[in-house]
Design a protein around this nucleic acid. Structure first.
Lengths: 118, 118
DNA sequence: CTAGCCAACATAGTTAACCTAGTTGGCTTG
DNA sequence: CAAGCCAACTAGGTTAACTATGTTGGCTAG
């Protein structure tokens, strides 16, 4: 799992978790899976998972409690809902579509196409 | 540097840089010192500096350009350090990638010299 | 002089390892 | 039984190393 959509893994995981939170799949007050579980689930290293969680923590969507876990914050508390979520969905959609185009382009062109634009 | 006040180092550095940006000490358009320079300046490891810069990047206060540097964004552009800034960064990312795709597409149509079309 | 190669330096991403610190539950000891 | 220790698991922070990719400027070959 995790890419190769050109979007870095830690952002993909953050996106996914954010979507689960805002989609209600992860209800407020419930804990996320542990770092180790997420790492296995996404087939990623612990580091990228920690980075992803760090982003959500930074955004205020979750609150980490040492020794216990990372808990989803109340949606009312975090001002993330609304048109912002809409824009986020749109951006994510564009990311996926663009990634596909980029991939097609990458496979149809050879490496090392000398473009010496300067 | 980087105290001892319980606040993690990467947040301290991010705070300091943020203050410099918003205080005008680092004007919009100007590049931050390189990662290595910041590491020496704050007497921190490269990792924590990268984390600090990553935060500012995530907040939309700065924009990193691979191979060139990390540049301070216009204060008007990045008002709220939050979801909006994040989305703006995502849009920026999409713009850059789309521009590249468009460029490749344009060159491949003009120069139709047998680039292995799969 | 021009074109192309190449080294140096930049950000960015990923991984792995180690340490701190809080929590929990079981086990041992008195 | 009760108190306390201890092992296991949790998040968080830090560091180091490696890879990828982009930019720039200097050097060299023609």
């Amino acid at each position: 799992m995790v890419k190769n959509t050109g979007r870095p893994g830690y952002l993909q995981i953050a996106d996914d978790l954010r979507a689960q939170i805002q989609g209600g799949s992860l209800a407020p007050g419930t804990p996320l899976p542990s770092t180790a579980q997420l790492a296995e689930q996404y087939d990623a290293s612990l580091s990228v998972v920690k980075m992803a969680v760090g982003i959500l923590r930074n955004e205020g969507l979750v609150i980490g409690q040492q020794g216990k876990g990372v808990f989803v914050r109340d949606a009312d508390d975090s001002p993330a809902a609304g048109e912002v979520a809409e824009l986020r969905a749109a951006v994510q959609d564009l990311s996926v579509r663009l990634a596909k185009v980029e991939e097609q382009l990458a496979t149809s062109t050879t490496r090392r196409s000398g473009r010496g634009s300067r």
